[in-house]
Design a protein around this nucleic acid. Sequence first.
DNA 1: AATCGTCGTTCTT
DNA 2: AAGAACGACGATT
Length: 163
Amino acid sequence: MMKRTIIKTTEGAFHAWFSDEGLAALSFPNGRSERDDGADVPVEWIRQTEAALNAILRGEQPKQLPPLDFSRGTEFQQKVWKALLIIGVGQTRSYSEIAHAVGAPGAARAVGGACGANPIPVLVPCHRVLAANQRLGGFSAGLKWKRLLLAREGVGEAELVLR
DNA sequence: AATCGTCGTTCTT
DNA sequence: AAGAACGACGATT
């Protein structure tokens, strides 16, 4: 069903899981080397994933993304993830702004939950979502990654509220 | 820093 | 099938 493939980047080897529909999950480099079962994944998808990932890591807007398979998310989560795709490189939104964008004002906290459940970090840029007043907020993969990604996109520490 | 309101998801009855 | 508990939140005090 799901095939895992290794995506090499300047930051290490990400692992990507592809379904028949497209890219379904992505995980940050974890040190451990895992097996690559993605021999029959369309090379185009792999190429697009690698190119998009490296583009964002360079702080550039990716030309195009591979097809994304959101089908494992709830309706609400899918709405949030789609809303995140609109945020350009170097831009940020607050959890509350996303809540409004998906027609659920007041659900800022629930948006945080949906961001945490985002199966395709980086390409679905949950790292561009901050808490109110430019506070950093959280990140499931660890705040070091959120900081690094934002820094690559030109969002400096200075623009973020400390803490 | 402590507290409360809010709301989708997950865990327990 | 409810109901309680739990957060990558936000606003108030």
